[in-house]
Structures are given as structure tokens and as C-alpha cells.
Amino acid sequence: MVSLGFNLPALIVVGISVVIGLLMVVMFRYTSDQKAIHIAKDHLKAHLLALRLFQDQIPVVIRSYGRILRATGRYLRLAFMPLLFVSVPLILLLAQIDRYLGSTPFETGHPFLVSARVTGAEALGDATLELPAGLASTAPAVHVPAENEVVWRVVAERDGSFVVNVLTSAQTSAKQVVVGSGMPRLSAVRLRGPWWRRLLYSAEPALPESNLVQTIEVQYPARVIAFAGLEWNWIWLFFVLSLAAGFLFKSILGIEI
């Protein structure tokens, strides 16, 4: 924690929002048809003004509503086209930032669930959880045959980064579990499957494709960031702040959005 009335995650989100706001606006500038967007926005404003100027001319008002809808569609099409270029790096970046800011580690003494999804009923029956020192199971495993899932209730006795193992037949599948505070890199799930799914969802190596265990998952608590007297999920705070930063930079740089 820092002593400016902000906590560190909030400061980080502010910093990230400003930088990304600037970068995205600049990227938008170079990947969009600025003139077309300018014209589309102007047409929208014109049709809105027409509603007021010709308010007693009912056919004009009705036509203006139609044109507002069409102009909105055109504007959205023009504005979203550059998102192909902007959204790919941004989504990857947000997915990585989410590892640090999206959740908090488990707290000592607070139980949490470890769930494993397996292939086949046989593996479901065989699956057991092997816990390292510092973690303890507090209840028998719950089997959910409909989902091919086994769930264990675990509690941490101390802070630390632990590895839990799910054992099926002769295979061992490991998963990292973090207990403590701060902003460590957290991975809620370890899975097998295509690389892009791991890139977006997991911060751990893939499970082998031959493995009977498909995923091992824990649900870290969502991080709540205090900012401006409110409690925020980081993505909402980022949404507001990056919009504000984008608005500022677009005005300064004369970029049409």
C-alpha cells in the first residue's frame, strides 16, 4: 500500500489506462479512415439538428430518425473496423494484466475449491488429490459424474506458492496454487487444448494431450480496487480511465474517434 489515498493496484490501473489510452488512440488514428469517421459523425449531428430545425415537418422528422439509424450504423462500422487491428494486441495484453489485477491470492485459513475435469468415468473414480505441506483437505472429494468433475475442498495453513497434484491411474497432473497477498501472477486454470486458449486463460504450461485430466481449476477471489470512494473491478476502472485518457489525447492530438 502507498500513502496517497490510493492503493498500488489502483495506481497501476491508472498508469496502464493512461498509456493504453494513448496507444490505442494513436493506433486507432493510423488504422481508421479518419475522414470517413469525421463525415459520418457530422452526418449524425446534422440529422439530430434536423429534428430540432424542422420539428413541425413530420415527414422530415420521420426521415431524420431513419437517417440517424443509418448514420449510426455507418459510424459504428467505421469505428469498429480498426478494432481488428487494435483489439488483438489489446485483448492479449488485457488477458496478461488480468493475471495480476483480476484476482487476489487465497488467504490463509479460508477454504477454497480445487476442481479437476477428467476424461471417462474410470478416471473420475480414480482421481485423487495430493497436497503439499501447508495445504490441507477439509472434506471428502465430491464427484460430479454428469460433468466428469471431481471437487476438493482445501484450506491453506500458511502463505506460499504451492503445487497440488491430481493423480489418475499412473498419471500425475500438477497445478499451482498461491496463498498470501500482493499481486503475484495468478493462473486460475491449467488446461490442455489449443495454444490460444492457454494464452487467454492460463498462465501455466499445457497439460499433455494424452493426459486423462483435462483441466484443473481454482477460483481465486476477485480483486476489488478502491478508487475515488468506490470499489471497482479493475476492468471497469480501466474502462473509465482509459476512456478519459483517450478523450484527452484525442483532443490534444486531433484524432477523430
Partner: peptide, 11 residues
Amino acid sequence: SHAYAGPGAGF
């Protein structure tokens, strides 16, 4: 988080 793709989309 992916529902929001930057200030461009926001605007």
C-alpha cells in the same frame, strides 16, 4: 475483460 477493446470501442 475482452468485452472492452480500448477507448475506440468505448467511444
